[in-house]
Amino acid sequence: MVKTTVPRDEYMMQGHVACQGCGATIAMRYVLKALGDNTIMTIPACCWAVIPGVWPQHSLKVPLLYTAFEVTGAALSGIEAALKAKGQDDEINVLGFAGDGGTADIGLQALSGMAERGTNALYVMYDNEAYMNTGIQRSGSTPFGAWTTTTPVGKKKEWKTEFKKSVAEIMVAHRIPYVATASIAFPEDLYAKVQKAKSIKGPKFIQIFSSCPTGWKHSPDITVEVARKAVLSHMFPLYEVENGVYKISQKPKPIPVKEYLKLQGRFRYLDEEAIEKIQEHVDREWELLLKKEEFTQSL
């Protein structure tokens, strides 16, 4: 037997209709590997609403409830209430799997409500930084400088001029027991975080960075490399917050953000000034995160 770093059980089947080199499918594969088949899942409108295939096909080995765009959090509370009524809420995991549009913009109030009600469920946001399913429109989670179809770049350089909204920090402010960020490029870390979330009672939130070759305009073979460079350049730091205490999972020696940006066509138009602005923002955020870790651990 060759030793593998993650278990071999698969709960995602072949034959799904994701794009070539899709990052969100890797995220789903590892989340389900960690949760196991004793899971009820809910998915709003997002890429994963189409990936399982055209009806009557289905590519997940767990029961799945499709919901409207804005109600993932409410659906989680509903499923949990039903399980409680049946007395099965301790044995069955409840999972919500939503994209960044359905979490950061449209589904934010339902997510906030779920966190406030203390629903015992895991909410996973797979972050591909735009509304990819409907054709690459900007979302609150799209980073500064990115091209999308609603922030087009032509003669006028009208890329997105706002910085990425940090949903993980919003969830930390809800004082829920577990918040984490993870990346598809580090499956062992992702697996461990979902396992940890599984063992904690109460609302849990994990944000998974999953690159999208179609929307980010990079070739499908570098999906994992792009996700890895996002972590190495501190664009997307990996950390977890347990009961308000920060712990940074990886403190890599930073590579310039340019290394990350130049891999993707959506950042092709950026001039030196804009790249400098992104670098400054990233450095400041990283410094802030280090301070938060130091401060919360000293409390």
């Binding site: 089947m13 072949q14 070539q20 295939g53 009557p56 289905h58």
Partner: peptide, 19 residues
């Protein structure tokens, strides 16, 4: 067709290799 939109067909019939 089944009465409700419940699916029981695995996607493994999909020959995505043709892509």
């Amino acid at each position: 067709l089944p009465y409700a939109t419940i699916t029981d067909v695995p996607s493994t019939f999909n020959n995505t290799g043709t892509w």
